[in-house]
């Protein structure tokens, strides 16, 4: 098992180096002189221009620039925002909990709904339930989520008035930030109704963000489950005279979940992509909104750093999924 983890870790390193190369080149691909682009229409004096070039290390050879860049990353320095002048890492850390909170709730929604739907659809193959699950999941899978957000807002916030339109908390509450996770902070504050309000604000964004992952999980679970139910060892299990429920839960599900876990892992990328749109629409102060706004403001260090961090998160999550895959599947674990 230990060897297995080490082997997986070794594979991640070149990918990570590739990502630093990518973010490094990305910035240098901006047409025109980077300083002028960053300065925008105001222009910049020649002296200031030279000073900025030196400050950003742009007067060095490319290779030196790259190594400087990697060195800075290694020491945790991702540069400073051109606008706010705060370090990118610091900005990221303040906003990240909001995204994690939203993405976790969305993932929870996707798994709690998608997994059982997929399982039941497979077990009751060909039934009305199966057909509706397949129809809904294909629709969910095809959903332009920014429109889905608008539509849900139209129905639930505007017409029915049950959910708030934007933000993380009603303005009437003022909560000290402890963990950055609104659900936890409101609980810690002890203020009455704050937790409910935070939860209230989470519902729509979570559903919106969780829709595509839910659809993917439901479809994957169903097809994986169908495949497993046709396996010889399921027949063996039934030949032992165990109850159908036990066959499904103990023998089928465990095997069927192996590919589903990978799929759930892959949803992290989808969630972070979706967070860009969802956060923008619901005015959710997380990294998705932050990145989009930085792109709009041409705040390139933030864009560069943000992409690097997001990609790193995805690599780490995929690594964890791979390791979990090994835990669940003895065949993988033992192949060295």
């Amino acid at each position: 098992m230990f060897q297995f983890i080490i082997k997986k870790l070794m594979l991640v390193i070149p990918t990570f180096i590739g990502i630093t190369l990518l973010t490094f080149t990305l910035i240098r691909l901006i047409p025109g002189d980077p300083i002028e682009v960053m300065a925008g229409e105001r222009g910049v004096s020649p002296e200031r221009h030279a000073a900025l070039r030196a400050e950003l290390g742009l007067d060095q050879p490319l290779l030196v620039q790259y190594f400087d860049y990697v060195k800075n990353i290694a020491s945790g320095d991702l540069g400073r925002s051109l606008i706010t002048k705060t370090p990118v890492t610091e900005e990221f850390l303040t906003l990240f909990p909001a995204t994690v909170e939203l993405a976790s709730c969305a993932a929870l929604f996707a798994i709690l709904v998608g997994l059982p739907c997929g399982i039941i659809a497979a077990v009751k193959r060909g039934s009305v339930f199966d057909h509706s699950v397949m129809t809904f999941s294909l629709t969910g899978y095809s959903m332009p989520i920014f429109w889905w957000a608008l539509l849900l807002m139209l129905v639930f916030s505007v017409n029915l008035g049950i959910t708030p339109v934007s933000g993380r908390l009603d303005v009437t509450y003022w909560i000290d930030e402890v963990t950055g996770f609104m659900l936890i902070d409101t609980l810690l504050s002890g203020e009455e109704g704050a937790f409910a309000s935070a939860l209230h604000h989470l519902v729509l964004p979570s559903i919106v963000l969780g829709t595509i992952p839910m659809a993917v999980i439901a479809r994957m679970t169903r097809s994986s489950m169908l495949e497993v139910l046709g396996e010889d060892y399921i027949r063996t299990a039934r030949s032992k005279g165990m109850a159908p429920m036990r066959v499904i839960v103990v023998h089928a599900l465990r095997n069927a979940l192996i590919p589903v876990i990978t799929v759930i892992g892959l949803q992290v990328g989808i969630l972070l992509s979706g967070a860009i749109l969802t956060e923008t629409i619901f005015a959710w102060p997380g990294i998705g909104k932050w990145l989009i706004e930085s792109i709009g403001r041409r705040d390139y260090p933030v864009v560069q750093g943000g992409i690097l961090i997001v990609a790193t998160i995805i690599i780490v999550v995929n690594l964890l999924v791979d390791i979990m895959y090994g835990v669940v599947n003895p065949r993988i674990r033992h192949s060295k």
């Binding site: 063996t236 005279g241 023998h251 095997n255 599947n329």
Partner: peptide, 19 residues
């Protein structure tokens, strides 16, 4: 089933649960 009447199958490799 499984207690009084038991059965063994053709493909032993795939008849055991890999997990």
């Amino acid at each position: 089933t499984g207690a009084e009447i038991a059965m063994i199958f053709q493909e032993p490799m795939s008849s055991l649960n890999p997990c």
